[in-house]
Write a protein that binds this DNA or RNA. Structure first.
Lengths: 149, 149
DNA sequence: ATAATTCCGAGTAAATTAGTAGGCATTGAA
DNA sequence: TTCAATGCCTACTAATTTACTCGGAATTAT
């Protein structure tokens, strides 16, 4: 049960934008270079996040991307769900409505999938991009130079 | 981030074996019929579980499968991990050793993947097959007839 | 003997993943 | 006003994974 590279790369890209929040638009090329991601591929992921309202873009020279809200107001869960879809271990646990499946009567496994789902989402919804940045700066005060333009 | 049908079907099959624990071997055909799973496909999943020591088989006529331990001693996590591999959202969070990846220095996302991993495993490791059966019987005391041979 | 079963290895169609490729549109700066 | 930098868009693709199917050999109770 793995996340695809979409969620992984996307979150790393958002971390970069969070680190540089308030410093104007950052071009994708910079993010792709810093995070070792194919720029063209990242473009698609960022497009998804733009459509979902997580980032804003500025076109043309000196353009780039920026978070559309402060890092403290964007959770890891929001990012991952936008790129990966609902975080649920099976389809029938995506929402809480009673599922329609071919097995009549009570499903002995669904309650487990729902517990897994809630537990996963609780984790990612409790962490914001700001938390990630704070954590990074705490662990690597010496590496702040890495994130100047 | 979904479980494959291996984990889903496998757990449902194990539930069946748990419901009938202590009543001799149950043929795959019965399990497949009750749980609406292709018998041939289930065969492969059960083979994996047999090799992992979760079930025992009896060959020949009147043969079948049985749990190799009481339902209270087999967790959902054990079943799922045998069929799906380690429950981790990304490769570098499978174990706790420092990962070797192309990004030198501190990875700002890994701590999140590890929290997700631990949270997922905590859920599945805290539920046994016995818990599933107890829950089923509590919810459907009327349907015990479904599980007689 | 026979029927019921497990056991084993091969094959496969469809879906998903993880990108690539190429070009158009927009804009700041020289 | 030109041009380089940048975002935007659509299509294509190779490799991998998924979810099976198929056919038959081995084993055993009756």
């Amino acid at each position: 049960m793995r996340l695809s590279t979409k969620g992984q790369y996307g979150l790393r890209a958002m971390f970069e934008l969070a680190v540089n929040y308030g410093e104007g638009p950052i071009p994708l090329k910079i993010i792709a270079d810093r995070q070792f991601i194919s720029e063209h591929y990242l473009e698609q992921l960022v497009a998804t996040m733009r459509k979902a309202g997580l980032v804003r873009s500025t076109r043309g020279a000196q353009g780039g991307y920026a978070l559309s809200r402060p890092p403290g107001e964007i959770t890891v869960g929001q990012v991952i769900r936008v790129l990966e879809g609902p975080l649920a271990p099976v389809e029938c646990a995506i929402d809480n409505e009673e599922p329609i499946c071919d097995r009549s009567g009570y499903c002995p496994t669904r309650i487990i999938w729902i517990k897994m789902r809630d537990s996963i989402n609780q984790v990612v919804d409790s962490i914001t991009l700001k938390d990630m940045v704070d954590d990074f700066r705490k662990m690597h005060p010496d590496k702040s130079y890495m994130y100047e333009i």
